[in-house]
Structure formats: structure tokens, C-alpha cells
Design a protein around this nucleic acid. Structure first.
Lengths: 236, 236
DNA sequence: GAGTGGTCTAGACCACATC
DNA sequence: ATGTGGTCTAGACCACTCG
């Protein structure tokens, strides 16, 4: 795929991250950019709109496009991003313990979370995430086997997302996240390092494919003192 | 402002909400829509992309645009949305108590949250939100007086957002939300109905104007058992 | 092959900001 | 008046899906 506007977006995004354009500074005008890239203005505009949506720039009518500069490193949480990508931009040391990795038949509770009418073969993965020597996150993943025939330990130590999207080329299309605060379960207490906390922050992630079928359900249970969710929202 | 693509977006969004197009059903093709609205295909595409970004539809190459159908009523939380808009789509009864509403000089803590180098005149608003007879949310708002000269009780009982954007026509451009779990303060304990909880879910909202200045800081403190944050994320 | 959405173009007019 | 971004057009070619 060529995709001019995407490559312009990536180039500009990288340049902004590397500091080629100063925070608060102005990018070249749309006309100049279209001449520089030898493309049409609408195509440049698609790239700039992507930058805007992702918090890199701010467009102001009659003035120009200005580079925003607040810490982009804690942004990636909002969106379809997994644990590995989350940590890649920080310098913390981390480790993943695979506690459970097995094929199973969905019990009524999981069936309902996956929107299944009847029990079905699934993968069940339970992982504990350790950051800076503390076990802080309990990740419980459930996939429909119909879509993921093979799942190995190596994959689970890494990013499951990457594996599903790149290796299995599953058409992941959108996800819905629901964040709640819940009482610790016995399982939380056993697997996570904790002091006297009695609550955990629970992020339930429902992942849908292009045909609108729900194929993955993930429950991410965080120790409350280490939990932090960042969201970036643009008006219009 | 005419803005064809926005009006097409709103019309289709309303039709979808009213059930004119069935969940899982197909919208007319882009060609048909452009003929129906007497406009170009690119313009229709802008409307459809908006629908897609807001979770109304799912576009599939070679097939068409399909109507998604999960409960849209709990979506509005993700985005720049205030308490009043949040409740408007539900049927719960609610009430707002204004606890504090006064001009003040920003103390060091607030100055730092608002990114101010030196103390500055601000508005301080503390409100308690009651839903179904229970005091559940404590909202603490801080605005720079430079931008908001007048603030009345009536405005605070309603939506401050609406007032700022429509009445004051402040160019609100984007916001950053940070969600954390924190121990209850003495103030939380006094103002909220609670049982034995010791934690609250804190949503810190930083609102920026078009010129990239931070002008509002809001702290929304929720009783954990009633807290729920929903996020919708589309891949690409 | 026909229908669909995805990308791209070259130009147009508008509203807003600046001088 | 000039430069900027916002909208819109009429057409083009491509990649994908489906019969």
C-alpha cells in the first residue's frame, strides 16, 4: 500500500517527537506542505487531521498548524493498546508471569461477557504483570478458539495484540473499554503484591472484529495506587 | 454556517438512534447517499467517517456501511462531556448542591494544576452531585477569572460547559483526562454519602483553549461503587 | 464484471487572522 | 490585500467482495 497521507502523517509525527518542530511552533502551511510533498492539499490535510486527532498539533483557522507539546508518553493508554506498547515508551523494568494458559470451554460468566449463546471452546490466559519488582496488574484474557487456533507461551510473554493482528491478521476493528472500581477477589489477593488495599481498578476490554463479532474479552485488574488512565479528547 | 457534511452526519445519527436503520443493517452506498443529498461523494464520506468515529457505523471495504448497535447511552463519558450531558440520556433523577462558589486567589497547589507561574484570580466551585437520592460525586472546578468574569449560582446548577462555550463563546479546543484511584479525604467523607469505602475514583480534567492555554482544572471525585468510565476506540 | 469503499487530484469559494 | 485553514466538487483509479 502506498498511502501518501499516512506516510506524511508518520513522517511529521516522528519529526515532532524528535523535536524538529518546537512546541508552540508553527508547521509550514498546507500549501507549502503540499508543494514539498508533491501532492494535493486535501491529501496533506488528511495527514494534518490525523496529527490533530492524535494530539500532536492544533489547527487554527486563518493562522496555521501549531505543535502541541505535552508529555506524549502517557497518552497511549487511550486507544487499543496493550501492556507492552504501554511500557515501551517508559524506562521501567517489567516482567510477565504466565499463570494460566489453556484451552477451555466458556463457563456461563465468560459466555455472557463474550456474548455467546452457548458454551464454546476458548483460550483462557491469566498473566501477572510486574513493574519495578512489584506485581501490580492481573490480566485475564479470553479468546474464541474459532479465531485463534494456536497460542503459545512465547506469544503470551510478548504482546498478544501484536500476534493477533500481525501474525494471525485478524481484522480487529474497534474496542470498548469499561473502567470500574471493584473489591479485591481472593485471586487478586493471591497473585498481586498488595498492602492493605481492598479495591482494584478493573478495565474490561471488549474487542470486536470487522464483522462486528466480539471475539476477545480482557479483564485487566490494577492495584489502585498504581493505576492511571489517560484520555485525550478534542472538541470537534 | 452551512456545513453539508455535518448536517448529513446529524441526520443519519438521529435516524440511527431512532431505529430507522436496523442494527447490523446496511446504509445506502456512498454513491446513493451523494445522489440523495445532491452532493459529492467526498462530502458524504466526511459524514460517514464522523459516524464511524463516533461508533454509529462500521465501514467495510467492498461491502458497505453497517449500523452498529450497542448501547450508545453509556458512551458520552468519553469526550469532553459534563455531568448534565452525561445524565440527559438516562432516566435517573439528579440534583446538584453548590457547596462553594467564590472568587479566590490560586494557592500553590491549584496554581501548579493550572500551570500558573504565580498566584492569579480564579473561580472556585465545589459541587455535590446527587443521583437517585445519594450524594455520589464531588466536583471541584477551578477557572481562571481572566477568561470568565461572571459566574452565578444558576450557571453552576446547570452545565458550566454549556455556559462557557455558548454564552462566553470561549474557544475550548481540547482536554486531557487523567483517572486515578485515591484515598478518601476528610472533605470527601463529609460531603459524600458513603459506607465503609476508603477510596474514591478521581477524574482530573484539564481544559485547553485554542491558543493552547490551560484555563480550567476540574477534579471529579466519585464514590467507587458508582463509578463507571466508558471508552470507545477504533483501530485506524 | 458490477458494486463497494479508500485514496487522490486540481481547482474553487468561503471565513478568519494579520498587516 | 494576502495568507491561512475549512468546505466542496467532479472526476479518476485502486482494492476488495460477491455472484
Amino acid at each position: 500500500m502506498s498511502n501518501i497521507y499516512l506516510s506524511i502523517y508518520r513522517e511529521l509525527a516522528q519529526q515532532i517527537e524528535k523535536g524538529k518542530w518546537k512546541t508552540g511552533g508553527k508547521l509550514p502551511s498546507e500549501k507549502e506542505l503540499s508543494e514539498h510533498y508533491g501532492t494535493s492539499r486535501e491529501t496533506v490535510r488528511k495527514a494534518l487531521n490525523l496529527l490533530s486527532q492524535n494530539g500532536y498539533i492544533q489547527k487554527i483557522k486563518g493562522k496555521g498548524s501549531f505543535v502541541l507539546g505535552f508529555n506524549r508518553y502517557d497518552f497511549p493508554v487511550s486507544g487499543l493498546v496493550g501492556f507492552k506498547e504501554l511500557l515501551s515508551k517508559t524506562k521501567k523494568s517489567w516482567k510477565t508471569y504466565i499463570h494460566v494458559l489453556k484451552p477451555a470451554i466458556s463457563d456461563p460468566c465468560i459466555s455472557s461477557q463474550l456474548g455467546l449463546k452457548r458454551p464454546e471452546p476458548i483460550w483462557e490466559v491469566v498473566r501477572v504483570r510486574e513493574i519495578d519488582g512489584e506485581k501490580i496488574i492481573l490480566d485475564k484474557d479470553y479468546f474464541r478458539q474459532e479465531y485463534v487456533p494456536v497460542l503459545t507461551e512465547d506469544v503470551c510473554k510478548d504482546s498478544i495484540y501484536e500476534y493477533l493482528e500481525k501474525k494471525c491478521s485478524l481484522p480487529i476493528s474497534f474496542a470498548k473499554k469499561v473502567i470500574t472500581i471493584e473489591r479485591m477477589t481472593e485471586e487478586d489477593r493471591q497473585l498481586l503484591d498488595h498492602q492493605e488495599e481492598s479495591y482494584v481498578a478493573v478495565v474490561r476490554n471488549y474487542v470486536f472484529l470487522e464483522d462486528n463479532t466480539l471475539f476477545q474479552y480482557t479483564e485487566s485488574r490494577h492495584r489502585p495506587d498504581k493505576f492511571r488512565f489517560v484520555d485525550f479528547a478534542r472538541r470537534n
